[in-house]
């Protein structure tokens, strides 16, 4: 399973713990939206390549 973790803001320790469990034994990728100019084309590509996307607060 391919899972994509997207961050709208800097992840908390709780978020990091949950991500670690969710990513275990999976093909995991991530994307940071919390930047000045996110590459939305790349994000869409990643979302369509993943089986599941989790976009954290």
């Amino acid at each position: 399973m391919k899972i994509l973790q997207v961050y709208r803001s800097a992840p908390s320790e709780e978020t990091k713990t949950l991500v670690e469990i969710l990513n275990r034994d999976r093909d995991a990728d991530s994307f940071d939206l919390n930047v000045d100019a996110p590459d939305y084309d790349q994000l869409v590509e990643k979302v369509f390549a993943a089986d599941q996307t989790v976009c954290w607060w």
Binding site: R8, L33, P38, Y40, D41, L43, V44, E45, F48, W57
Partner: peptide, 19 residues
Amino acid sequence: TSPQNMRHVVGIAEAAQKA
């Protein structure tokens, strides 16, 4: 669900259409 992400909503919608 959040009131502060319009740039992401528009950016992702436009990128999706482009793709």
